[in-house]
């Protein structure tokens, strides 16, 4: 029952932590009639309190480090971070920049992350990442 509910209904809060807007546009593309993620019960919400998944785009800049941490802490458990794009994995094209607080696993070391590589990843890949994210939610929700 627990796993089934997450499988059928997953609410996503989108955080842009210094992305070039490429991944954000791909996330929007996943909402359009062509890919229509709402048919899987996936919905973008306006507040981290409502969210199960934080979709994080971009390398985390030093300005955004604190905000990303706070948004992550504001989300109710169980929760998962969906890292969209290569930037969140390694820094991507920005990897040597002076203003990076580092990739996601450095800023949020305790978070369960699902990585979707690509620059930018295709909407299919993002949907696939969400599918993997709800498996983590299953284990997180079932464990408690």
């Amino acid at each position: 029952m627990i796993s089934k509910s997450f499988k059928k209904s997953l609410w996503i809060f989108h955080v842009n932590s210094g992305s070039c807007n490429g991944c954000d546009i791909e996330i929007v593309a996943a909402l359009t009639p062509r890919y229509d993620v709402e048919r899987f019960g996936i919905k973008l919400v306006g507040s981290p309190r409502h969210a199960d998944v934080m979709a994080l785009t971009g390398p985390i800049t030093s300005d955004m480090e604190d905000k990303v941490k706070r948004v992550y802490e504001q989300m109710p458990d169980p929760k998962v971070v969906l890292v969209v794009g290569s930037c969140g994995i390694s820094g991507g094209v920005f990897h040597e920049s002076y203003h990076l607080a580092g990739p996601v696993n450095k800023v949020l070391p305790d978070a369960t992350c699902v990585y979707v590589p690509g620059c930018p990843p295709r909407p299919e890949a993002i949907i696939d990442g969400v599918v993997k994210a709800w498996k983590f939610l299953e284990s997180a929700g079932g464990g408690e």
Partner: peptide, 14 residues
């Protein structure tokens, strides 16, 4: 296509 008709029930359950 849109969500299935039972979607709100899943949302509440979640």
């Amino acid at each position: 296509v849109g969500p299935p008709l039972r979607q709100p029930f899943w949302d509440v359950g979640k």
